[in-house]
Design a protein around this nucleic acid. Structure first.
Lengths: 214, 214, 214, 214
DNA sequence: TATGAATGAGTATTCATTCAT
DNA sequence: TATGAATGAATACTCATTCAT
């Protein structure tokens, strides 16, 4: 009754020729489009094929099943967004840490908002998504990026915070951003909330370092 | 293609006789049991009927579809858990606010943990759950309870915090508890994280009140 | 690559009510009819449903897959034919052994001939049929029946033949009957062949008993 | 519903150049290999192409469909085995008829055994194989070979046996060999059965000639 | 000729829902 | 009211075959 089936998240083969590349690309885009428009429940291999304008046979030529399509799309999306974040971050390295952190959080929020529907579909409807992206890793990874970007301010903010503080910060940042994007509180400006969040994080980073305990 | 279906989450009729009541109750329990054991993917109306020991016809006698079964179960679960929380809270009104808040958060965490599988099924697999329970309502409601329980400490902690702080506190508490329960960080004691969370919230409540701003 | 899948040959549930019995019966008959008319290659669950005049859902209500339909049909067919054989045999117990044996072989042949197409489909097209009916068992069982029927002639024919003789007799009888039915030799009367076969078997039974060796 | 399809079992064109010949040869070998390893169910044109290391287009260049591949392979296999048998037979022409017959039957049995898996696939899983090789032709042909090889013993064994005896002998020999190879009786030495079979055949050849009737 | 990407009809199977009894 | 047999649209996936390059 409770078997987990061990889903295959990988492509059967990588497209080599130009024609196959465009087929795979159409499939990926169709997947994103369907998730965006109608959610995970509307995602079927036949529908993907129809929207992509390719035959169902072609879909199975490259993907072992719909989970692999979703996974491939999600990986591509993550990669492209990570790239955006990195370049965003490195282009702003002249700011002070406070400004940089606020900007960083704002950028993350915009990213989540702009992918709202598709993220909702992935996170809240695809039951296997966590096998694909262990969430802590992602959260902590994002925070590490933020902190790394703050190397210059190392004196001011004791970045070697205790792990539970680090965890807390990353987890609650993620929680807040998602809440703010998916269920925005009526009568509350997002920016205000993000200002507050940034302020607290900065406080905690100051207090949360081992040195501050003493 | 983009039809939203407008799911009916309500029972067709309330059971009047004792027999009908026990039928409905068996259906609800069967639903919970299946979600608990095998997740949302295993939940079918036929299976609910089978586990409940009731005919499929009877299921449709009371519920318009499976979403209504899930919704009814979820509402009942929420209500019962809210009751537990209230009584828990009122039974401890002699503690100081710090202790009470830590206890409150710990209680919430235990509640989430003890309902882990079923919450996971509801939150991460039922695509319509957010239509059922607007999430911030729930979060804010929970915090309100916490704060109400702290009425006596009103002098010490300016409870009339700004709304964005209130929102942030509730949202990040929820995020942290879920993360801790569903994706516990390896090598990190939950209690330590909760201690830290409580401390931060208390700090915040002190600073976050309008009075502190001045 | 080489996994065998472990086919389920059993019904999901036995029909209880009259209505379900007739549904199952229609399915079985449709299966036989398709095999008879178009062979195993034409047998699909959808086609069975169509020919039976029931919905595909009803087919899966009672059978886990098409192999189980075939198996159930085959078992029923075997049982009914075995019954025919037994009654045939017992109704003729006044004959001498020679006549009885010839009659027995003739009856078997008629049986094979009258089920020719369906047997062909089962034996030569359904790749799993041998898992269902281990062939030696069936052959030897048939011969045992024949020999048992000859109990009275025990003095004349030493029935305690050596096992390899028994095996040979059963195997070659089966082989001959099938050949005669499925690939009748042009310009050769079947009865003549069967006469010959009977004569040889009788000779053999005389010589093949341990007593004759000495 | 009752269409018989009239399968085309012949190659589209004979390969002329050396390269084409090796392509066709690779296809044939791949077909044999797949049947040997995984049975008829695993045989698909795409798989044949893959195993042969040839493009699917090339397969259809030479064969109209997969049945033609199987047929061509089967014919080649038969031819090669017939050659083996002839040479086997002619290399032993100094033996007396009894020994030769036993040897002949033993050789046939070894042949069947060594091709067991592939014969099983062809005979019991390929639904059209009988259209390809009318079985008694093959059997009678084999026996003719045996008898031809016994030309010198013509005086001793009246080889001009009645046709029904000839048919019987060939049919039951085939049946026995296949049974022995595909469903070997537990606890029974094959050689013993073959000894017995040979002895009976020799008996029958003696008795079965018209002269013996007189 | 050779290639292999693309096709799509066909098949098995599930499950929410209806309705005759 | 309760039952559960029956329904059939929907979905995943395969594989023989075609055809543009």
């Amino acid at each position: 009754m409770n078997e987990q089936k061990d889903i295959d998240f990988n492509m059967k083969k990588k497209p080599a020729q130009a024609r196959s590349k465009s087929t795979v690309s159409a499939i990926i885009q169709a997947c994103a489009q369907i998730l965006e428009k109608d959610g995970y429940g509307a995602l079927s291999t036949n529908e993907v094929a129809r929207v992509a304008g390719v035959s169902i046979g072609s879909v199975y030529e490259y993907f072992p099943g719909k989970e692999a399509i979703v996974a491939t799309m999600a990986r591509a999306m993550l990669e492209s967004n990570m790239d955006k974040l990195y370049s965003e971050l490195s282009s702003k390295h002249d700011n002070d840490f406070e400004t940089a952190m606020r900007h960083w959080i704002g950028t993350l929020f915009e990213l989540v908002k702009s992918n709202k529907k598709i993220l909702q579909a992935l996170i809240f409807e695809a039951p296997y998504i966590w096998k694909l992206f262990p969430i802590n890793n992602l959260q902590v990874q994002l925070l590490q990026v933020a902190l790394k970007g703050a190397a210059r301010s190392r004196d001011q903010y004791r970045i070697m915070v205790r792990p539970e503080v680090l965890y807390l910060i990353s987890t609650l940042t993620a929680g807040t951003l998602f809440n703010l994007a998916f269920a925005p509180p009526p009568g509350l400006k997002s920016n205000l909330v993000l200002d507050e969040l940034t302020a607290r994080i900065l406080d905690w980073l100051k207090d949360g370092s081992p040195a501050a305990e003493a």
